[in-house]
Structures are given as structure tokens and as C-alpha cells.
Design a protein around this nucleic acid. Structure first.
Lengths: 308, 308
DNA sequence: CCGGGACGATCAGTTTAACTTATCGTCATG
DNA sequence: CATGACGATAAGTTAAACTGATCGTCCCGG
């Protein structure tokens, strides 16, 4: 079987017309090169090199083989260059999953700058609940997901992007005095409105509030935060609103209040198969997301809530 | 250093998406293939294959490397096909040397059929004396020579093409009775006309005649057989004419006579560097030369000489 | 005519690469 | 929970490649 090494040695012969010097070029001893050339001639079944008294020359076949061999070696070098190139992240197809409690608030701000900074990124976005995202990610149908961490799946690697505070959203009423910070226990007497089964935000809200008071009233089943907020505006109860959603979901009829320290929050991050080489993509994407979130959080919910 | 074997294994993975089956395709065991793939990934410095629970997939890089690798392997296969192809003789450049006592008589007949049978032969012809031809052949400036054999150079390989009788050429005179065959000793009283120093034909003539009679008269210096024959026609002496030249050099004023048995003759053949792969060219060329000579020798010099 | 030097081939022995068999660890399945 | 599939890993073997020494030939200068 012919090898790249043999082709390298042959091209060295073509260049030097001398076994000894060709061997030196290849950093091997002359017998090693001689043997490889003989091996090549035998496997190709023809003479490539004509050994004469004072000179060495390639036969017509040898010249053609050397020419083709050089081209092949160049292709191999190109392949190596390609593989070892600086790999810019976020190039080509990226199948990105994102949960519904993040997508409508983060994507409108993140996508424009993402496209601007990574014009060769071909993004395919899938929005669904965490469990489906994780399943599709592990199955290989997605490359990267944006979700609330941790996910606790050993086959996934994750990266924290930013933390997202939970705010209390309640109906704005004139008689209510504006409260700077709210203690979670103050929710105990309220109706807690939640998203339907399967949303991680629902579980997070429950873990924040449920721990406080088992007798809290819960209303189930809204399929989007937007729906929940309409209910809140009309006095059906309160809900936990991610700070990220604040400026979009805010209305005059809703009051957004920060919790007293320690404020409950969720960690938003990225996850990918540990076996896939997506870390650099994740890191680049995390930066973009952080920038997008930063511009949101400038609109301090605390201050705006005062208006409502 | 990346190897063709590694590329083969990677393309097998690309085809099967399965280490075990890829290994079977390559006729090796699975660990062998796994190790080569790891080796390849390490030398390229990037992941090519994503090993997942139930499936194996190529990364984007892996797909590109496999694609390029397949192209490289195809080039290698083409190279092998090229080298192992049936090699038709007499294709491409052939630097052919030929001695002056053959060229004018053989080439006019041989070249047309040579070009007809070997249209891809690019012939470059050099005509000079044997010593120069041999030197240039050994030096690598010629590929093949046509000369009188033997040459007795161990670095050359030779092939006999055909034998060429020596005829006696003497002035045609009315009073001479036509002699069917001439004994070499009959030349003892004649003036022997020879080519100039360096022509092998001169040495051959000398060895034929000189052995007989040291007192034979010799006239030296003609630079072509044609000149010699003019001298013969005008009665300046006799000469030895190669039968091959008979039909071209014959005139009414010259009588051509065959020697009595055993007729002296020279062996016309081909020579090439033993280190060069020109045997098949020589064999093909020898056939063409033999055909060309055959059509000449149909003109029996004995019969024609009778006319003169 | 002889001795020395250059060159590629060859040989023996060693190092390195590649492979095989056996086994492990993980995960999915019945 | 046992089983089977799969790729990784380990240990040991086989095969490839290389080195250093030597050979044989040729050439060249004395």
C-alpha cells in the first residue's frame, strides 16, 4: 500500500536528484529513503527513479508520479491547515434550543447583534420546554440550548451566562403603598398564578414560594407569561416575573416589586453535549446574551414599578 | 503526521457512522480503527467524530476532513491506476540515436510506419557515430540507440533487431563476368575504400577484409557511404556495402556482389541503459525496424547486381 | 595502475508504529 | 436486574521503518 511518506521521499528525490541529499531533506538516513523508494516502485509496479553512475533521474513515470504526489501532499497540507486553522466560533449551522420563558425577551435583543457579530452563523431556533430541549440535545437534534441551569445531566456540559432575578408582579392599585422590597412571606396570602405543567419557570416559582407557605393559593395552566401577566393586571393573583421579561411585560396596571435580600433568582446558561465541540460557540454566544441582557436591566424594575 | 490510513478509516466512519462496522470495512479490529481516529484527531488538533450513546456522528470539521480525505484518497487511487496501467511502448518523448551507416537507409522506410503505429511517439533523432551515441546514451542525453552490435558496455542492455549482410561493391564493367558469389580473398588485389575514422562500418570492413590480406590497399576518409559509392562507380576501388543500403546506393555503374558463405554480416540492434525502463520501447521499435528492413531485402541484391 | 572518495544498495539490529485479543465502563433494553 | 451493544483502554505481539555499518561500483587524481 502506498503511503504519503513514500510520496514525500519521491518528491525529495525529484528536487535533489540525489538520494543522500533527499534523505537529508527528509531528515532520515539514506538507506531509509532508498528502501521507501523501492517499496513505492514495487507497489506501483514500475520504475520511478533511474539510478545512474553519477546522477539520479526520474523516469517519465517517476516524473508523473512525483507531480501527482506533490499535488496530493499539497492537498494533505491544505487539509491540515484547514483543520488546524483558528476556528472562529458561531460559524455555519447552529441548531439552538431556547425555553419559552426566555425566548421572547432575550432573542429580540440578542439576535440583531448576534447576526452583526457573526454574519456566517446560520441559526436554526427551536423553542420548547427544557425537558424536550435536553432530550433533543442529547439525541443530536440540537447543538446548543439556552435554559435555566442547572440541568444535572452528566452527558451535558454547561456554561452560566447571567443570573435573572425573580420579581413579584401584582396588580397596581392606587391605595397600595409602594414597597421598596418585598419579603417572600408577604406572598402567603396571595393567589399565585403559574405557567402550565412542564415550564421550568413554574417549578422555580413553586420552589421560591412553595417553601414559604403550603397554604398559598395557586392557579395553574397559563401557556405564556404574557397571559399570566394579563391575569395579574386584572387582579386574579400575583406571579413571579423574571426580571428579563420586565420591560416587555410591564404595564401601568401591574406593579413589579423586587424581593428583599437574598433575592431569588435563576441562572440562565447554555448547555451542549459534552461530546460535542461546542464550548467555544457557547462562550461566544454567552457573551452576546450577556450584552443583550445588560441593556434590558438598565431599565430598573424597582424604579419603574414606582410609577405604576 | 497524518497518514492515508487514517483518512481511509475516517471515511469508513463517515460511511457507516459506526466504529465496529467501519473497522470491518477496513478489515481491522475496532480498537485499531479507534486508535487511528484518535491519532488523527490529535494530529489535526480538533474533534472529528462525536461519540454519542447510541450513535456516532462526524462534527462539521469531521465532515469536511472526511470530504477532503476522500478526495485525497481518490487522487491516490488515480495515481496508482496511472502507474499500474498497461504501458503502451513508444509513447511520449524518445531520444533516439542512430549511426550514419544505417540512418539514411532504414529511417525513410521505418519512420512512416513508426508514426502510423505509434502516433503518440515524439521522436527526437540524433545521428552520429557509435562512440558518441554510446556516450550520450550513458550520460542520459539519449534514451535508445540503433547501432551495430555488440557494444560491450556492461551498463547497456541490447536487443538484436536483424542482421545486415556486407556486399562487395565494385565498378560495373562490361568485360567482368557476373560472379554469383565472391570469395573475400578475391578482394586482396583491390583498393578498399573506407569511411573516415570513427565509423563502425569502417572497422567492420577492416575486420572483414584486413584479416585476409595485410597488403590490401586502403583509401580513407569518405564521410558518407554515398561518397564512397561514387568513388566506386568511378573505379577508384571497391567497398563493403551494407545490404540495407543496396537499393538506395545502387547505380548501373556499380556491381553489387554477395560474398561466398559464410557471408560476413553485422548485427543491427538497439541499446539502452540497463537502468532505464526502455526494453519494451526497444522491443516495439525492433519489430518496426525488422518490418522496414524486410521490405528492403526483398530486392535481392544478387539478382539486381546481375543487371549492372 | 592504484588509492581514495562519492554514491546507492544491502544487511543486521533496534526502535517505533500498528495491530490483536481481552477487558472495562456506560448506556439502553427486555 | 441481567444482557447486549458500543467505544475506550490495556497488554502483548507483529510488522514497518529507521539507523549504523558495510559492500560494490564508478570516477578521478596521483
Amino acid at each position: 500500500m502506498i503511503t504519503l511518506r513514500q510520496l514525500r521521499y519521491l518528491t525529495a528525490i525529484a528536487e535533489t536528484r540525489h538520494f543522500g541529499r533527499a534523505a537529508a531533506l527528509c531528515h532520515v538516513t539514506q538507506p531509509a529513503l532508498s528502501m521507501q523508494i523501492q517499496e513505492l516502485e514495487q507497489s506501483l509496479g514500475c520504475h520511478l527513479v533511474e539510478r545512474r553512475r553519477n546522477a539520479v533521474d526520474l523516469t517519465a513515470d517517476g516524473q508523473e508520479v512525483a507531480r501527482r504526489g506533490a499535488a496530493i501532499l499539497a492537498s494533505v497540507a491544505d487539509l491540515e491547515d484547514y483543520a488546524r486553522r483558528e476556528k472562529p466560533p458561531l460559524v455555519g449551522l447552529l441548531r439552538l434550543g431556547i425555553i419559552p420563558s426566555i425566548a421572547p425577551y432575550l432573542l429580540p435583543r440578542a439576535l440583531p447583534s448576534l447576526h452583526e457579530r457573526y454574519p456566517h452563523l446560520e441559526l436554526r431556533i427551536r423553542e420548547t420546554q427544557t425537558a424536550s430541549l435536553v432530550e433533543e440535545l442529547i439525541r443530536g437534534d440540537l447543538d446548543l440550548i439556552i435554559a435555566a441551569l442547572p440541568l444535572d445531566r452528566p452527558e451535558l456540559d454547561t456554561l452560566n451566562a447571567f443570573q435573572d432575578r425573580f420579581l413579584v408582579a401584582r396588580q397596581a392599585r392606587a391605595h397600595r403603598r409602594k414597597s421598596e422590597r418585598m419579603d417572600p412571606s408577604a406572598l402567603a396570602t396571595e393567589h399565585l398564578l403559574l405557567l402550565e405543567e412542564g415550564h421550568c419557570l413554574r417549578d422555580q416559582a413553586l420552589s421560591v414560594c412553595g417553601a414559604l407557605s403550603p397554604n398559598i393559593q395557586m392557579a395553574f395552566g397559563a401557556s405564556s407569561l404574557s397571559t399570566v401577566m394579563h391575569l395579574v393586571a386584572n387582579g386574579y393573583g400575583v406571579t413571579l416575573l423574571p426580571e428579563m421579561a420586565a420591560d416587555i411585560e410591564r404595564t401601568d396596571r401591574v406593579q413589579l416589586i423586587r424581593f428583599a435580600d437574598p433575592e431569588p433568582m435563576r441562572m440562565i446558561g447554555l448547555a451542549w453535549r459534552r461530546s460535542s465541540p461546542r464550548r467555544s460557540d457557547a462562550e461566544a454566544l454567552a457573551k452576546v446574551l450577556l450584552d443583550a441582557r445588560a441593556s434590558v436591566s438598565l431599565a430598573r424594575p424597582q424604579q419603574k414599578a414606582v410609577q405604576g
